[in-house]
């Protein structure tokens, strides 16, 4: 578990390393330095929104209020099974092959 530093300390290499682990991107030492410095500058700029008092402000996830449009929960036949199978990196006949999940 990585303890995030206080915000005013900026983004450290430990934080970037932890984030890279969370989002499953391998970084070497050089890349770690590179991204730490760039993300640091971006975050410094993004901090700008903290100038605003937002306590009373409400929010929504979508740009304009609208309700979700549902369709009937009915199965439909997919017309292009072979096309779909071809997308997978590894396959055997009509099966897809994935790396072992459980040790």
């Amino acid at each position: 578990m990585v303890i995030f530093p206080k915000k005013d300390m900026g983004i450290t290499k430990e934080v970037v390393k932890h984030i890279a682990q969370l989002c499953r991107i391998e970084l070497d030492q050089e890349e770690l330095n590179y991204y730490s410095s760039q993300l640091g500058k971006v975050l410094e700029y993004i901090e700008k929104i903290n100038q605003l008092n937002l306590e009373e402000t409400s929010f929504e996830f979508n740009p304009h209020t609208q309700t979700n449009v549902y369709r009937v929960d009915k199965s439909e036949k997919f017309f292009n099974l072979q096309g779909l199978l071809k997308i997978f990196p590894e396959r055997e006949n009509n099966f897809i092959k994935i790396p072992k999940v459980i040790e």
């Binding site: 903290n50 605003l52 937002l54 402000t57 409400s58 929010f59 740009p63």
Partner: peptide, 13 residues
């Protein structure tokens, strides 16, 4: 809370 949620609020402003 410090970033994503605040940004959503800024968006609504």
């Amino acid at each position: 809370e410090a970033y994503y949620l605040k940004a959503l609020k800024v968006r609504s402003l």
